Simulated scan of single mutants.
Amino acid sequence: MIVRIMGEGQVTLAESRLAELNELDEELLAEMENGDGPGFRATLQALLTRVRDLGEPFPDDSLEPSDLILPSPGATLEEVQNLLQENGLIPEAP
């Protein structure tokens, strides 16, 4: 699957990694619901770092349709809420 981190670029990520990312996604949702700004910021950074670590970067001059779009590292709570799908930022693992 192709994942875009807004403002950074794209990576290829195996769908088998979605379950691992869902744990961080659920934590992020809980922090958003509880208004935990510092927790939200830390978990967003952890989620994006994990995607970068698990993914293979696309060349900078390549642009493919993204299967998943994640917010930039500096995204606000409101910006992230606008990107949420039914189950959060990360789809449920197959």
Score class of each variant (00 low, 15 high):
Glu33Val: 13
Gly37Glu: 13
Gly35Ile: 00
Leu84Gly: 03
Ala93Gly: 08
Gly55Ile: 05
Val3Asn: 10
Leu21Tyr: 04
Glu56Ile: 09
Glu15Gln: 15
Leu13Met: 02
Ala93Pro: 04
Gln10Trp: 05
Leu70His: 05
Asn22Arg: 15
Leu54Thr: 06
Thr49Ser: 10
Leu18Ile: 05
Asp67Trp: 13
Glu78Cys: 00
Ser72Leu: 05
Asp36Arg: 00
Ala46Glu: 06
Val51Phe: 01
Asp53Pro: 04
Glu86Leu: 13
Ala42Gln: 06
Glu64Gly: 11
Glu86Phe: 13
Val80Phe: 06
Ile5Asp: 01
Val51Gly: 01
Pro94Thr: 12
Ile5Trp: 01
Arg4Cys: 03
Asp61His: 10
Gln45Asn: 09
Thr76His: 00
Arg41Glu: 03
Ala75Gln: 00
Glu64Ile: 09
Leu28Thr: 00
Gly55Phe: 03
Pro73Met: 03
Glu78Ala: 04
Glu31His: 14
Glu8Phe: 04
Thr43Cys: 05
Arg17Glu: 12
Arg52Leu: 10
Glu79Asn: 02
Val11Thr: 09
Val11Trp: 14
Ile90Ser: 09
Leu21Met: 14
Leu70Arg: 04
Ile2Cys: 10
Leu48Gly: 08
Pro91Asp: 08
Ile2Arg: 13
Leu18Lys: 07
Thr43Ser: 02
Asp61Asn: 11
Leu63Thr: 10
Asp60Gln: 11
Met32Ser: 06
Glu33Cys: 12
Arg50Leu: 15
Leu89Ile: 04
Val51Glu: 01
Asp53Ile: 07
Glu86Tyr: 13
Leu18Val: 07
Pro94Arg: 14
Ser72Thr: 06
Arg17Trp: 07
Glu23Asp: 09
Gly35Asp: 03
Ala30Pro: 07
Leu77Glu: 02
Gly74Asn: 06
Val80Glu: 04
Arg52Asn: 10
Arg52Met: 08
Val3Pro: 08
Leu83Trp: 06
Asp61Lys: 12
Asp53Val: 11
Gln81Lys: 14
Gly9Val: 09
Asn82Ile: 02
Thr12Lys: 13
Asp25Pro: 02
Leu48Val: 10
Leu28Trp: 00
Leu21Gln: 03
Ala30Glu: 13
Gly74Ser: 12
Ala42Pro: 01
Gly7Cys: 05
Glu78Pro: 01
Arg17Tyr: 11
Pro91Phe: 11
Glu86Ile: 09
Ala46Gln: 13
Glu92Ile: 13
Gly9Tyr: 08
Asp53Leu: 11
Asp61Arg: 12
Thr43Lys: 02
Pro73Ser: 03
Gln81Tyr: 12
Glu64Asn: 08
Val51Ala: 08
Ala93Ile: 04
Leu83Met: 11
Pro59Ile: 11
Ser66Ile: 07
Ala93Leu: 06
Leu70Gln: 06
Leu54Ser: 08
Gly9His: 04
Ala19Asp: 14
Pro94Ala: 14
Leu70Trp: 02
Glu64Tyr: 10
Asp36Trp: 00
Pro59Phe: 13
